[in-house]
């Protein structure tokens, strides 16, 4: 167990990097780590380097795994299932199928027109942006493994329940007509060689870094500001443990934001360090990743308002409940 802890500290939490940056701050810049400037500089440099290293390695490995789960394959697997098992499998496959908001529409059309029930499609659509392997490992790196696993479990539960509820509501008539006009062709899954998969993984790293680097810098910047410049009292007055409105407020602030989970993690880290409830922070992160204005606008092209509203309500209520749950039971995880 000790060697696991050591690996965890050095590889995931990168304590060696923290020490190196500390040396840089103290010896080269001549700043005191306890001072505001020294502390926030340390937070900024250490977090930026750590997130970029983790991100590159993780995206590479994960994209390679994902290349085995193209949506065509997911659809075929799900096509042979019914009921709860289909929802659960949909939610689980959502964590390994490559997802980007620009292909959520063809995916939705492809799933629906091949006859998959709405319940299963929505289980997949909820879990896909919310839970993925990269966010799990980053959560483990910033907090710990129990929090990371708890996040994955509640994310999957939300996806399964949310999808099932949408299925129960019998909202098929609120899917735009053109979606089901064509029966989707069943494309053969491409046969990729190892070289193809590795090239794909490398491209994904380059593409995702290009897309998210700014969010990460902004996120870490906000994190560093929260860490050392904003008074703890102000934060706890606004979203502290004692306010009932903290969780819904965090959720509602997160919804319209369009950022990557990698940008929100440093903010989450700083807020938890300031004593904000873990549930409040996780609700914010989930709201940012699961729902965003661009994603909702996209989805509006294929579903009508009542179904979109139901989806939105279920996810917001679900995230809020998860937030309260985590605030209540955080002492078991931290």
């Amino acid at each position: 167990m000790d060697s696991f802890a050591w690996l965890n500290d050095q590889l995931l939490r990168m304590n060696w990097l923290s020490d190196l940056v500390r040396l840089l701050i103290e010896k080269v810049f001549g700043l005191d780590m306890a001072s505001r400037l020294g502390g926030s500089l340390h937070f900024f440099i250490y977090d930026v380097i750590k997130i970029f290293i983790l991100l590159s390695v993780l995206i590479f490995v994960i994209s390679w795994v994902q290349s085995y789960f193209p949506p065509e394959r997911t659809r075929r697997i799900l096509g042979g299932m019914r009921g709860f098992r289909a929802n659960l499998t949909g939610a689980l496959l959502g964590t390994v199928t490559p997802f980007c908001s620009c292909s959520s529409i063809p995916l939705f059309i492809g799933f629906t027109s091949s006859g998959l029930p709405l319940a299963v499609t929505f289980s997949f659509l909820i879990s896909s942006p919310l839970v993925d392997l990269a966010s799990m490992i980053l959560l483990a790196s910033i907090f710990n493994w129990s929090i990371a696993l708890a996040y994955v479990v509640v994310g999957i539960v939300l996806a399964v329940l949310g999808g099932s509820l949408i299925g129960r509501a019998r909202m098929e008539r609120y899917v735009e007509a053109f979606v089901t006009q064509h029966r989707a062709l069943d494309l053969p899954v491409e046969q990729l060689t190892l070289a193809d998969r590795l090239r794909y993984a490398r491209q994904q790293v380059a593409e995702i870094i290009q897309r998210v680097w700014l969010y990460i810098l902004i996120g870490v910047g906000i994190g560093a500001a929260i860490h050392n410049w904003i008074p703890a009292e102000l934060i706890s007055d606004l979203i502290g443990q004692n306010n009932w409105w903290s969780v819904p407020l965090a959720t509602l602030v997160g919804v319209p934001m369009y950022a990557d989970i990698f940008g929100t993690l440093p903010i989450a880290e700083a807020l938890v360090a300031k004593g904000v409830g873990l549930g409040t922070v996780l609700a914010f992160m989930m709201a940012v990743t699961a729902l965003s204005l661009p994603a909702l606008i996209m989805l509006k092209k294929v579903v009508k308002a009542p179904l979109l509203a139901l989806f939105f309500t279920i996810v917001v209520v679900g995230i809020t409940l998860i937030g309260y749950l985590f605030n209540h039971f955080a002492y078991l995880l931290l």
Binding site: P71, S103, I105, P106, A184, D186, L187
Partner: peptide, 22 residues
């Protein structure tokens, strides 16, 4: 056009079609 993309059976973009074959 999403409907046209989906009609070809494609679920993840970008995709390349040569002589009507994905």
């Amino acid at each position: 056009d999403y409907a046209a993309i989906a009609a070809l059976g494609v679920m993840s973009t970008p995709a390349l079609v040569i002589n009507e074959r994905v």
